[in-house]
Design a protein around this nucleic acid. Structure first.
Lengths: 202, 202, 202, 202
DNA sequence: TATGAATGAGCCTTCATTCAT
DNA sequence: TATGAATGAAGGCTCATTCAT
């Protein structure tokens, strides 16, 4: 973010960034509603007013966090999805998802909530992450097997749900699910597909 | 729920029931935190004090709702799981889950949250629903294929996640996923299992 | 408000009433914005929450105070205005206004502000007090002299302004204006009218 | 305010002037409390810090605005008051007052508030405008009629009140009061004086 | 069994002010 | 001379909970 050698405006601990990180940390295990602005500010080592100076509102902070994560996830997911072999692509997408959720539990947390609260959904402008991801999954699946149009969405959603849920489960630390084992489990859906559908003509 | 003229014996704890239903309705689309006791009481047509008289606290009300639903779900799930044919059993379990979530969105809502908030989890004493369900799934799966011990949990969790997520998705009304299509999609995991594992010796 | 002999629900110090009075007292010398809800509650000897329990919002409390005073003022003003002799009626209206403002400085305070803030104006639903009072003044004036239609409003507004301002001035205690002297001063406008307009044909 | 090309010497304290104007604009329709420093700075196109650099505090800015306006008003009022004919002098004072308030609603706004808030009053050091104006009015009135000492202040205050109130009323745009009509209405007080008092011996 | 007035802790937000640059 | 990031006090409001009746 800074050219090497550029002298940082001394003492600019970059409150915005610290708030972002503090929020990420806190939202990893608790819902936005249950985390107060005071808490976030304290965790970031800045005053409460600074949150408002930098983000305008609590919702905006959360929203920016969400978008930031969504972009990061989708970027890498899309990159990985382009792998030659569609099955490999899916596996790598899942692996990345598992790692991503493990590194940033806050995002999975936020996304699951996005699914829950009707209103929160709108907070995230543009296409919901949900739709973006399932769209991507569908693309890859189509390179693997022939799918009836009406099946596409349900299959993709099922995969997405399984991945999000297991990843979150792992990240919560309450269950010890092995990474590879989990990826393989989710991939079973794809195995089922290959076993019951004709391969993509391509 | 009661035939006209069926005059309830003592007209007792009618309030409790009404509160239960009101809460169920409200929690179908909103998080517990965002639903106030006032609101629940108002929706039930009783005073706020009555909530405390009957349940002691808001958390307790929600908790009881949760247990009630969990019991109802597990009861039927276990019944269906005992079907002779394990594949059929799974299919029926999924069908029932879909319908259950559609009928009582509040439960799915609450369960997903149970997964999310670290604290909320403890609210529900005893074995978390999560564990109960995956246990049941594992039992059935074992009647179908041979599973390595370390795979059991991840596969069952994957199925549970896919089911919960797609069911909730359907219930939210934001996507139109066909019931059968969805069940079949989740069953793909099982298909994958059958295609890649030896059948249960039994 | 209570039948004689009716036993008051002991200890019902009637928070609402006390809040009303406390607010009235505080608003006598300070603007609504500068008086905090905490302060009002403390002055009334109740908790802050009680303000919201009883009024819903600070604005609503002020608004109700306003309406209450407006009604009280208009009621008496209208009664006095009906005196046979229009000049006497005006004198008595002014005397009453002086006394009213002296007793309840908060109202004059609030009304002057009503004139000031564009938005606050709407807070008071229905015809603004301003209009009601000038309307009443016009009625009486017409029984005294013949007035060109286009003069009516300006004359009445002028009288209203003079009365409100002098009354408020007196009530503020910063100037010592004698009651009778002040009434007479405002009445000069009417004297001027009588000296320059034909008497009402009636 | 400056001819194009008139290039200001040092381009100095241009900020101060712009802040002054921005504040004047904003305070024309809203109370000082409801106008934030941010808003004023933004309207002036300078940073918030500049307000503090130039004025030290928000109150000081408002206070200076007040004094500036008071001086401007009093200067012209005093000039006009010296007209040979006292009645004409009063008429012209009123006409000027109407125009002044129409041009700079902020001042009338501020002055009315000065009357209201006990604390704000002190903000304006020196003789309150109120006193200055009534003093001037009294001087002129004394050249017109013989006035008992105890009447002077109430009559002058009444005229001031009527003028300030009607002027403000007009400026608010909520009522359409004709300028001449309004001046005449306020002058009625003087007419009443002439009709009931002996002319000044002078 | 039920009520509803009252409470107080806690929340989000605004804003005048400071200060290093 | 000017900036703007940061602050912290204060404000309005919500809400789970208590309690006298």
């Amino acid at each position: 973010m800074m050219l090497p050698g550029a002298r940082r405006r001394v003492r600019t601990t970059d409150s915005k960034e610290r708030l972002f990180e503090a929020a990420m940390e806190l939202l990893g295990s608790r819902s936005p509603e249950s985390v107060s602005v005071d808490e976030i500010a304290a965790a970031a080592g800045v005053s409460k007013g600074t949150v408002y100076y930098n983000f305008g509102s609590k919702d905006e902070l959360v929203s920016q966090l969400l978008s930031y994560g969504a972009q990061k996830l989708m970027g890498e997911l899309a990159r990985v999805a382009s792998a030659e072999d569609p099955y490999l692509a899916l596996r790598q997408m899942l692996e990345f998802a598992m790692d991503f959720v493990a590194s940033y539990p806050a995002f999975a947390h936020l996304w699951m909530q996005e699914q829950l609260d009707a209103d929160t959904a709108n907070a995230f402008a543009g296409t919901p992450l949900n739709t973006q991801v399932t769209g991507l999954i569908i693309e890859v699946l189509e390179r693997l097997v022939v799918l009836a149009p009406e099946q596409k969405l349900s299959v993709a959603t099922s995969i997405f749900g399984a991945a999000l849920f297991t990843a979150r489960m792992r990240a919560s630390g309450r269950t010890d699910l092995d990474r590879e084992q989990t990826v393989r489990a989710v991939l079973l859906t794809v195995d089922g597909l290959r076993a019951t559908r004709p391969p993509a003509s391509n």
